[in-house]
Design a protein around this nucleic acid. Sequence first.
RNA 1: GCGCCCGUAGCUCAGGGGAUAGAGCGAGAGACUUCUAAUCUCGAGGCCGCAGGUUCGAAUCCUGCCGGGCGCACCA
Length: 529
Amino acid sequence: MSGPISELHAAIVAAVATMTGGEVPELALERPANAEHGDYATSVAMRLAPLLSRKPREIADELALALAVIPGVESVEVAGPGFLNLRLGDQWYRDALSDMLAAGDEFGRQPFAPGVETLVEFVSSNPTGDLTIGSARNAAYGDSVARLLEFTGEKVTREYYINDAGNQVGLFGQSVQARRLGREIPEGGYPGDEVALIAAELDLADDAPLEDWVAKGVALMVERIRASLASMRVEFDLWTSEKGLHETGAVVAAIERARVQGRIFEQDGATWLRTTDFGDDKDRVLLKADGEHTYFASDLAYIDLKFQRGATHAIYVLGADHHGYIQRLKAGAQCLGYDPEHVETLIYQLITVSGERMGKRRGNVITLAELTEAIGVDAARYFLVQRSHDQTLDIDLDLAVEASSKNPVYYVQYAHARCASIERKAADEGLAIDGIGSGHVPEGPEKALIRRLAEWPEVVASAAELRAPHRIVSWTHELAADFHAFHHDLYVLHEDAEIRAFRLSAVHATREAIARALALIGVGAPDRM
RNA sequence: GCGCCCGUAGCUCAGGGGAUAGAGCGAGAGACUUCUAAUCUCGAGGCCGCAGGUUCGAAUCCUGCCGGGCGCACCA
């Protein structure tokens, strides 16, 4: 990570190391809530006190002298129990802005780490119906995490696992056929309108065998799913078929691999995987007494395939109703001889619409397509990752549809459009600038904006590390607020060329920053609104 | 019973050990002759579920309890 703040951080670490002779406690640079406490503050002196057996104020006084000579630091004061409050000089702000502009879209980005191949498997909804709003959360969250990981230096592959084997797709095939022939839909079948659409579209004779109805019906359903995901800017690199795992012998091979590892046993006529060896609360059946493979058998083969294909890290994005799989998946990987640390499950909590949980059997399903149609792709993606994935999410559809003009996504997009508008006007009036100038003394709103912009590398790094795209949303909203305040207080296209150059530079940096941040959550940044 | 997530303003939620806990929505009062008012400014509104513990310092970490959501298949 690099950037104006990490440079400041590094300089403080160096000063502390000089003082202690090498040892440096975890050192955080904070932005004090109270402006009287400076631009940045650190509590390092308090953390150092027990290590050095000295009083924190004493340490702080000594460190203050060392920090005062760091380039860009205007003043240092010791406050409270031993806080070191730093105030940054005008030159720091000019340098920070200039560095950010020079970095452009690389600002905060990290180069690809060699040898890292991250696989993110997400959505993977059964191809028996249109994607629901729950899958929409999965898609928005999973794709945003993938984008974050790419931005912070991982090579990412996005994969969708198609559950096209077993009873459910069999029932789906029967439902398609029943629709076509105008018959009753089988017990537990799929009554959705999309099934009828597929039935009408299928090029099949009425008496075609069931497996054809299944295969062709699933193919069309998968295409519908792919299209709906693409419409919300989610694209997969790989679509892996469960049926294919059976056909290629991958399932049998995975079981054999586990057998070689000594994790297979027979009991009650079934073949079991001893996942309890690795912390699962019960062993799992792979081959049932009736000779059929379980769903978990394909899961096991799929884990095997992921690592055999060269993934170094396999991420699963699952809804809270699947959290019981975590231990099973990790134990399964371990039974195959893989490191469970390389299997990561990301659980997002369930989504409700206007307070009600969705369910196919509840008959109140809202589809992904309906959501994006109702509030637009930008608002949908913004809404879906606005809150922590650990938090159940309620979408108030009435509000989202009816009051979309006060939707927070517009607040952020409007800041971007304002920047673009100012830049357009500058170009039209021949006020284009080259560089940030040298003489302008930044004012309060300008400083606040630049401090915010400078946080980006740390924000994006922690969002990626925590798999928390909602942090991007929070930060972007704060950035937009800082910009709107700046815009309100200060006139950008000022007659003074120095002032104009500086402010136009800040506007340009802001526009780039908003676009960059929104791109990581798949939201567009319009130039006009 | 066991496991995962949550409990912060009227509502929906941010706050990965720091100083006086924040935002949006809602309710209140103001600001457009200037780069888009989809904006800005100001005020109101809080036993951060409860009780212990760790720490110089806890909304944040640990333990217990209470409340809510979701799971615990030879289903997929």
